[in-house]
């Protein structure tokens, strides 16, 4: 009989605490599959953030060092510079990466740190109960934008992949989603490529994942998956934003 699925070795056999339909558990599994396939389990240090995924260290069977809100890129810099042989990835939400940690993220990317960031964009602060995120869509209702996000007052959804891609230290940025089998397959390919960029010392790599949050979006999982296609990916288009291995030399 052909084996079509196995529990990833670097994913602990723990029950996820995530809500039904949440994208975190899919993203976790994809990263673990990639770590297994690339043989990185014993040389990886992961950096989980505060937020719903603060307990990521209960699931990833690799060395994990929790860090302060938004400081993932700085901590990754310290780890990678001190020990360049370690494979470092940060796992960050939208509040973490695109609000409180914007400076750390931009400068780590600009320095071309050989680190990999998995950026979970679910347009909302999940763990604290559904407040506005920097990536909250215009008109979207959250607990701190109860009348809908008004761009005149609250600004516009921030597009991190588009912002970071032009920086010269950036090797690879792709935006993917985990709301359908086809998208999940693409997401895994992107994560693999991001880790490969790090191994090849090409510079900063990031995969932005549009990730459903049915609980705080007040939707069923099925509605949430559809909303990623119908609404979210219109503002945050999927695709490759930077890939230095695809760029032709100007000369």
């Amino acid at each position: 009989m052909k084996k079509v699925y196995a529990h990833p070795k670097s994913l602990k056999r723990a029950v996820f605490h995530y809500c039904p339909g949440c994208g975190h558990s899919i993203a976790h599994r994809l990263i673990c599959e990639v770590i297994d396939e690339m043989g990185l389990q014993d040389k990886t240090v992961g950096i989980p953030p505060p937020g719903c995924s603060v307990f990521a260290y209960h699931y990833f069977d690799v060395d994990m060092a929790e860090c302060a809100h938004g400081r993932g890129a700085a901590v990754a810099t310290g780890i990678k510079r001190a020990c360049p042989d370690i494979v470092v990835f940060t796992y960050q939400g939208d509040g973490d990466l695109a609000a409180i940690g914007t400076a750390e993220t931009i400068h780590a990317a600009n320095r071309g740190e050989n680190t990999t960031t998995v950026f979970i964009n679910n347009a909302v602060y999940g763990m604290t109960g559904g407040q506005m995120a920097p990536t909250t869509l215009r008109g979207m209702k959250t607990t701190t934008t109860p009348y809908g996000r008004d761009h005149v007052i609250e600004g516009h959804p921030i597009k991190m992949s588009e912002m970071l891609a032009p920086l010269e230290g950036v090797a690879y940025i792709e935006r993917v989603a985990v709301n359908s089998p086809a998208n999940i397959r693409k997401a895994k390919k992107a994560i693999t490529k991001a880790f490969q960029m790090q191994l090849d010392k090409r510079g900063f790599s990031m995969v932005e994942i549009l990730s459903p949050c049915p609980t705080n979006w007040k939707m069923t999982p099925i509605q949430a998956w559809k909303w990623v296609d119908d609404e979210m990916s219109k503002i945050f288009p999927l695709g490759v934003y930077k890939d230095v291995t695809e760029q032709k030399s100007a000369d």
Binding site: A65, A68, R71, A74, V75, T77, G78
Partner: peptide
């Protein structure tokens, strides 16, 4: 926080 990372390793 870079110090934190370096101390972690």
């Amino acid at each position: 926080n870079m110090v934190y990372g370096a101390s972690v390793v």
